[in-house]
């Protein structure tokens, strides 16, 4: 799975450079997020601009990351969701759980 990390203003941004976030690759994202919180990072932003398709396993990996954030007194937020990906969050009511921002920079500002 192609994940690119960047740190800006004490926020680790994970860019998911995949068209699909599904049962084939989502466990790698789950592990990557888990490792960041275990390493002591507090603020993680997952940017989904390149993700055209998400399934229940992809949603589950992000839920896992969100719970990891809580258990480490950290934050996990999302940015740049394509409209059909966002509709899956709405269908599963997860849009009420995650803080979702239209762009990376708006999300970064919100962490401050």
């Amino acid at each position: 799975m192609n994940l690119q990390n960047e740190t800006r203003n004490d926020v680790v941004i994970i860019y998911v450079k995949e068209e699909r976030l599904d049962a084939h690759n989502s466990s790698e994202l789950k592990s990557a997020v888990q490792k960041l919180f275990e390493d002591g990072k507090k603020n993680v932003l997952v940017d989904l601009r390149d993700v055209r398709f998400i399934d229940s396993s992809g949603l589950g990996a992000l839920v896992s990351g969100f719970k990891n954030a809580i258990s480490h007194q950290g934050n996990l937020k999302l940015s740049s969701l394509q409209s059909q990906v966002k509709s899956m969050f709405e269908l599963t009511r997860l849009h009420r759980v995650f803080e979702i921002f239209p762009s990376t920079s708006e999300a970064i500002d919100n962490f401050q």
């Binding site: 229940s56 396993s57 949603l59 589950g60 990996a61 839920v63 719970k67 599963t92």
Partner: peptide
């Protein structure tokens, strides 16, 4: 259960 944050269990629902 939308009030419980589970990692799994959304596939058949979808």
């Amino acid at each position: 259960n939308f009030d419980e944050l589970e990692d799994r269990g959304r596939g058949i629902f979808l």
